[in-house]
Design a protein around this nucleic acid. Structure first.
Lengths: 344, 344
DNA sequence: CTGTTAGCGCTTTCAT
DNA sequence: ATGAAAGCGCTAACAG
């Protein structure tokens, strides 16, 4: 007791063995005689030695046995988004199985994000959906460690795990916009600036979040096939993915002149907000207003929402495998869940 | 390009400066001339050097700039508990501010948890509520690094951040059990085994989760003061903290002979399950059944539940400060929120 | 402002 | 089964 830091060398000395025997006691117990082992462990206990120093071990081994997860912008938002949380749980499953730690890298959106990435003691990175211009992407790539991006964007040298958002949006959009005259979309942000705004017929090419962009493209195609001009489609952009903001936005739309008769949202949380707004405005679903969600979360079943099912948990696990350098299929599956919130 | 690992020495050599000048370029840019700095950065760019190796740096500095969080049992459960998630967000706030990483240590409940703790490259530990007999506690203590336990148990040398659960349970129990003849409690697990069971007048001393134990003590006192014998109080122990299990359990209670007329739950999620069960059983709240929750989550306001308010987010932040070795008040605040789900 | 020296604590060779 | 040597990549401490 007492001295601040106990080293393996001290343990070895007290045990009367070489440093290597002490080291083997912790790393290859089978290659050490029981006698030597117990001498080492006794000495360790006596000195209060808790095991090899993790940093020294990482340096020597060249591996930290930890995966880094970059959640984008304010980290606390990440924990508030249930789909993001499922994704984390999927990563956690794999880490737990492998005995790996999982380091959450706090991103603030400011310039100091880059050094944080660069100085993270991790073996690989998992990046949660971000925008094309996110400097974090270059920082991750520069580390030359295995890395995977969930959702997008696609970056050279980095793996990508995602569903086909465009195809899924096309499919669910077809249900949402069936027999609609004035469809609207409740959307995720278009850029990292995250401004809330309402526009019509968005210039999709300018959208910097690839997931949002691809979904808008799918919705555009669905609108087109339903005989609706894209510039007639109102897009309500929400700064954050939550029910409250979607409800406010949808209320405004529904009480405006020429209110929408179909709203496709980008998450079930948003769709739940839309449903509440519709109830408050006295609209019947789907007759007055068709609503679709995304993710097939618990709330979608509860509200009987037509939605796109995908497993963020499985995708999180797939990302973890990729970040560990294991081969993984890049393309995740999705399916359409047709319920009573749409006319079709 | 090409060579697997680029070192600072190589960068320095190419730049024609000493290793220290290269090191300072990254760590004390102000102490290096602009000229030298740009030579170093040019060389680094040329070689594809992304910055000092984190493990080597940690070893040399004696600090990892990362905090470890132990969430207890299956990590994925942690992410499913909204209060646990708030707690994590509070830690994340502080880590983001300080430029620290946050390593989530996956705990499986098996024997291999201990080496995971021991080999975590972190400067301090935060342990989410656990049981008196959790081996993780000794492992954390053995590292001799700053550590803090949230909720309990209290362990020598380790900080503790918690509210006074006993007092809070006493207070909310008084509202729950007012004018009740047959009160019941929907409880968190009593031990890490996490078995679901229903007992009456539990032997509180045997409960291994201190948070659960203290709340039961508070409820017992409240029952006593309401003139109810403890052995008449039914305790429905849930394996997990979620609405679904609480709803099942409450349904069973409400359809039994001599159903409860008051139920105190240990979380708002559980209370929400109880409310749903009451509705299904056609019971009026609070006249037929008084219900109380805990935490004052969003759902509590929505269901107009009497509950105990506490900020897990602030407590998470307080834990982070403690784990960083900063002084922190150990005792967090709580307050009673009286709404319409109780008779008083 | 820049450089030299020393070693953080450990484990990978390669012997014995 | 055990040990000696070497060095992972970096930065604190001190010169100059």
């Amino acid at each position: 007791m007492g001295s601040k830091r106990v080293t393996l060398a001290q343990v070895a000395e007290l045990a009367g063995v070489s440093v290597m025997t002490a080291s083997y006691t912790y790393n290859r117990p089978d290659r050490v005689s029981d006698q030597a082992k117990s001498k080492v462990l006794a000495a360790a206990a006596h000195l209060g030695y808790a095991g090899p120093d993790p940093s020294a071990r990482s340096l020597r081994r060249g591996s930290t046995r930890t995966l880094g997860v970059v959640m984008g912008e304010h980290l606390s938002y990440a924990f508030e988004d249930p789909e993001a949380v499922s994704f984390l749980a999927g990563i956690a499953d794999v880490c737990a199985e492998r005995g790996y730690g999982m380091t959450i890298l706090p991103i603030t959106g400011a310039a100091d994000d880059v050094p944080r990435i660069t100085s993270a003691a991790v073996d690989g990175f998992i990046v949660w959906t971000t925008s094309d211009d996110d400097p974090v992407l270059a920082a991750v790539r520069a580390t030359k460690r295995p890395a995977v991006i969930h959702g997008g964007p696609s970056v050279r040298d980095l793996a990508l795990v995602t569903i086909d958002n465009r195809a899924a949006a096309h499919a669910v959009g077809a249900l949402a916009f069936a027999n609609a005259a004035r469809p609207a979309i409740v959307s995720f942000p278009l850029s990292r600036a995250r401004v809330s705004t309402t526009i019509s017929g968005a210039d999709i090419e300018d959208v910097l979040f690839p997931v949002t962009r691809e979904r808008l493209e799918g919705y555009r195609q669905a609108a087109h096939e339903a005989g609706i001009a894209w510039h007639d489609v109102l897009i309500a952009v929400c700064a954050r993915n939550d029910a409250a903001e979607a409800e406010r936005v949808a209320s405004a739309l529904l009480t405006s002149t020429g209110p929408p008769d179909a709203i496709a949202a980008m998450s079930d949380q948003q769709a739940a907000g839309v449903v509440h707004a519709a109830r408050s405005a006295g609209r019947a679903i789907p007759d007055d207003l068709a609503v679709t969600g995304w993710d097939d979360a618990a709330v979608a079943a509860r509200l009987d929402l037509t939605t796109v099912a995908q497993s963020l948990r499985e995708q999180g696990a797939a990302c973890a495998h990729a970040a560990l350098g294991e081969p993984t299929s890049q393309t995740a599956s999705w399916s359409l869940v047709r319920r009573s919130s749409t006319r079709l």
